[in-house]
């Protein structure tokens, strides 16, 4: 059987809210080392990966590897019934066709359980190599959210260029052009408010703003986001989920015809 317990439902609620518009369904692959997910958006230009490590859970048991096909909209409906501070337990028998979600309030005076029907989802598993990126930028996640939202009011695509001057986001559209540059800045006392630019070589890539905006739905998960860029490769936008793991969004760059 599979059983995983998290002390705060809020984490899972935020994760599912971050994914559900980009990917409607996907397989939660559970194994003794944790829960993972790979899912593409409907146009197949972006990939979401999720890794939740077994030791990040309060309790984790998985006797047999399983692939649980989840409709994220439906999972979201169920998670809306959990309080942010509720303890949440996910449970499934081996080869089950449903996933049980149990919510317990902090003082344990309210216990509810919901069964989510599982789906059979055929999905292609992609091999993502570990690699060195030309530029890795860590910035406040709220700053990333603001930049991509502001630029969306001007254009559809953004040119992201990392140089020793900083990371610049540029767009243009019918009403004009916009450029926003963030510099390496370790002045703020709080590490969460700092911007770190680790540059091996300058790089510039163009992306669809619609997707970058969608990734920002993960902002409530964590105060920092990491962007990894290399010429002609998908950008990686990564949000760490405390000690539990991380969610990564990969987006193919736009290239000249």
């Amino acid at each position: 059987m599979f059983e995983a317990r998290l002390p705060q439902a809020a984490v899972l609620k935020k994760l599912v809210e971050a994914l559900k518009e980009l990917v409607t369904e996907g397989n939660f692959d559970v194994s003794p080392s944790g829960i993972s997910l790979q899912a593409m958006d409907s146009s197949h230009v972006c990939l979401v990966t999720l890794q939740l490590n077994d030791d990040g859970f309060e309790h984790f048991r998985c006797d047999r590897n399983m692939s649980m096909g989840i409709h994220f909209g439906n999972l979201s409906k169920i998670l809306k019934c959990a309080g942010n501070e509720d303890t949440i337990t996910l449970k499934a028998e081996d080869n089950a066709d449903q996933l049980t979600l149990m919510f317990e309030s902090a003082n344990q005076d309210r216990i509810s359980d919901f069964d989510l029907k599982l789906m059979s989802i055929e999905s292609e598993h992609l091999g993502i190599p570990d690699q060195d990126y030309s530029a890795e930028v860590k910035m406040p996640s709220a700053e990333y959210q603001r930049i991509v939202r502001d630029l969306t009011s001007m254009g559809d695509t953004v040119l992201v260029s990392a140089t020793k001057e900083g990371i610049k986001f540029s767009t243009s559209g019918d009403i004009g052009t916009a450029n926003i540059t963030l510099r390496h800045n370790t002045t703020p006392e709080k590490e969460d408010e700092q911007t770190h630019i680790d540059l091996k070589e300058p790089v510039a890539l163009t992306f669809a703003l619609r997707y970058l905006n969608n990734f920002a739905k993960a902002t409530p998960l964590t105060p920092q986001v990491k962007l990894s860029l290399t010429k002609d490769l998908p950008v990686v936008v990564e949000y760490k989920v405390g000690e539990l793991g991380q969610v990564r969004f990969f987006l193919a760059p736009k290239i000249d015809d």
């Binding site: 197949h44 292609e124 992609l126 669809a208 990969f250 736009k254 290239i255």
Partner: peptide, 13 residues
């Protein structure tokens, strides 16, 4: 501008 599918960058594992 065009956009390749994400699977063009990562092979099947």
């Amino acid at each position: 501008m065009k956009q390749k599918p994400i699977s063009a960058f990562f092979g099947a594992s």
